[in-house]
Amino acid sequence: MASFKYIFLFTALACLVSCEDVVDIDLDTDEPRLVIDAGIEWVKGTDGSRQTVKLSTTTGYYTSDIPPVSGAGVNVVNSSGTVFNFRENPGTGLYVCTDFEPVIGETYELTVTVDGQTYTAGEKLMSVPEITRIEQDIAAGFQEDEIEVTFYYQDNPEEDNHYMARFEADVLVYPEYDIDDDRFTQGNEMFESFSHEDLEVGDRVDIRLSGISERFDNYMSLVLDAADSDPFGTPPANVRGNIINTTNETDYAYGYFRLSEVDTTSYVVK
């Protein structure tokens, strides 16, 4: 039995070493769908008047360019009927509003009209506590100890809250996200941590803490689960957000409309 294990290991290693050619698999590509990136963020200490909605379409797996969507009508309406229009920077797919009025607890509705289709979504602007302190420690990593950065914030005991933490650093290709709620920590001090095997003294870690709705918590949890899924398991289904096509429900869009108060800070590793 031991001999068989060694033979199997040698064969597997030989296969890995010999597979040097890059193989592009011919994947089926669906018709492009609209992608609406509508994250309204009111950063503490700002008036929140400048907001951006990005429109693009899905594309092939091996395509690095993301096609922008131009010529759309984009607006957000609050519960009092005030309309905030988003106008495109020509040819970019970026639609900008410069007079948005963020109000905690206010309900807003997004409308996007493009190519004869109308897409809508509604959400409430969620509050967030301040980041109170940051600590640095050493955490046990996969191969060796890693520097760990932890930030703390105080949960509001009067509300059921959901939070999203975002970490950016030079050691990351893409930002890292964490989702949390106060189901078991109501009214207590809460924290989120970030560590990486390549994090070194002098590196800067940018931190964003957002208040989010329970619906967005559920959505983002599915997105993160899909991103971390077992590569040898069943491929995850496409994750749908809260955006509805009121013209033709089968021609749905991807993305999510959310509104968050945000606290930001940066930390330099010591």
Rank of each mutant, 00 (worst) to 15 (best):
F4C: 07
C15G: 15
L16R: 02
V22M: 11
D28Q: 10
T29C: 04
I36E: 11
E41V: 05
V43G: 08
K44R: 13
K44E: 12
K44Q: 13
T46W: 06
G48P: 13
V53W: 08
T59E: 00
T59L: 02
Y61N: 07
T63S: 08
T63P: 02
D65V: 13
I66G: 02
I66C: 05
V69C: 12
S70R: 09
G73N: 11
N75T: 00
N78R: 10
S79G: 04
F86I: 07
F86M: 04
R87F: 15
N89G: 03
V96G: 00
E101V: 15
T107E: 15
T111S: 13
T113I: 12
D115R: 14
G116A: 01
G116I: 10
T120G: 09
K124D: 11
M126W: 04
V128R: 00
E130C: 01
Q136W: 05
D137H: 10
F142T: 13
Q143T: 14
E146I: 12
E146Y: 07
Y153G: 04
Y153T: 01
E158W: 02
N161C: 08
E168H: 02
D170R: 03
Y174F: 13
Y177P: 02
G187K: 06
F191H: 13
E192K: 09
S195I: 00
H196A: 03
V205Q: 03
L209Y: 06
E214G: 07
N218D: 15
N218K: 14
Y219N: 01
G241F: 12
N242Q: 01
I243S: 06
N245D: 12
T247P: 08
E261I: 01
T264A: 13
S266G: 15
Y267Q: 05
K270Y: 05
